[in-house]
């Protein structure tokens, strides 16, 4: 990948994020109800007016958006400031993200590692045993994994490995022991998907002419599989890593909810129900930035692995 193309893609992120922030901003505002509707005591009109004035919700919409972006105002998105949360008083959206994001990222990373670490070997193995019973067994396991989403596997694992035989903690977030069940819960689905993709990629790669050539030259079978075929067979997995990361984030809502993990996934659903405007927009932007960047990284890796691909 040429440097110019990379920089162009990087520069494209800025207008994209602006468009996304605008759509998200408008979407939460057209919704009926406001952030102060569900206060414990019914707020008097005066209090509500004061609250609205404090958070500038009585300004015209365009002015609020400019304030959010930070054009002509202090702070704002362009200075990396998402503003105050409307529901969690005295906390800025940045604070909440700073607390939850590391937890969610760690969970996502471990699950990602788990799904690749299990899926790729399983895929290679089934591809090499193609047509035999090992292949059928492996393929069945991987399709079974694809059909058991996190919110099905999670409760079952909790009941068996958390309550019946209390090997693992059933929830919360502490030492490395707490990471295992959530990560397995989240990663199993993707391990199955990765295994299926690896199997298809590897079976195709193994039929290529360059493999026959390598065989004819007397290259060892191990070297053929891992140094020649894998390089091409892994490409479908690399392509899929972008959507995989997106789905990992989605799955993390459920897993964080299930295991009571203090990540940021829990906030998205609650905040959009509570009409916590700044929080929702902030989270949408955060997720989009994360994903767009990761997708760019995936494309770079793809270009390195497959020299035939030219971007531009």
């Amino acid at each position: 990948m040429s440097l110019a193309y990379f920089l162009k893609r990087l520069a494209m992120l800025v207008p994209l994020i602006l468009v996304i922030s605008f759509i998200a901003f408008c979407l939460v505002r057209v919704a009926p109800g406001g952030p102060f509707d569900k206060e414990r005591a019914p707020a008097s009109p005066d209090i509500e007016r004061n609250l609205k004035a404090k958070y500038h919700l009585d300004d015209p919409l365009w002015k609020q958006y400019l304030r959010f972006i930070g054009v002509g105002f202090e702070g704002g998105l362009i200075r990396g400031d998402f503003g105050p949360s409307l529901k969690y008083r005295n906390h800025s959206v940045n604070d909440i993200m700073a607390q939850g994001l590391p937890v969610s990222l760690l969970l996502g990373l471990v699950s990602f590692g788990f799904s690749l670490g299990v899926g790729i070997p399983l895929g290679i193995w089934t591809a090499l045993q193609r047509g035999r019973w090992q292949d059928h067994l492996g393929s069945f396991i991987s399709i079974l994994a694809v059909c058991i989403p996190a919110f099905v596997l999670g409760p079952i694992l909790i009941v068996i490995l958390g309550i019946k035989w209390p090997i693992f903690p059933v929830g919360l977030w502490g030492g490395p022991w707490h990471v295992i069940l959530p990560a397995v819960t989240l990663g199993t689905y993707f391990a199955g998907k990765v295994a299926r993709l690896t199997r298809e990629g590897m079976s195709q790669a193994m039929q290529q002419d360059f493999i026959t050539t390598a065989r004819a030259k007397g290259v060892s079978e191990k070297s053929i599989v891992f140094r020649h075929a894998l390089r091409e067979g892994i490409l479908p997995v690399v392509t899929y890593s972008g959507p995989l990361l997106a789905d990992l984030m989605v799955g993390s809502f459920v897993v964080e909810n299930l295991f009571q993990i203090p990540g940021i996934g829990v906030f998205l659903v609650n905040s959009s129900i509570n009409r916590d405007y700044t929080m929702v927009v902030g989270l949408v932007i955060l997720y989009s930035v994360l994903l767009l960047t990761l997708n760019l990284v995936v494309d770079v890796i793809y270009g390195v692995l497959d020299k035939r691909v030219s971007y531009g």
Binding site: A246, V269, L283, V284, Y287, L291
Partner: peptide, 21 residues
């Protein structure tokens, strides 16, 4: 571009916000 966006997040936001309307 849509492929690389967390689209289900938009669905969550859309469902929670537009339901009342």
């Amino acid at each position: 571009v849509l492929y690389s966006l967390p689209s289900i997040i938009f669905v969550i936001v859309i469902i929670t916000t537009l339901e009342g309307l």
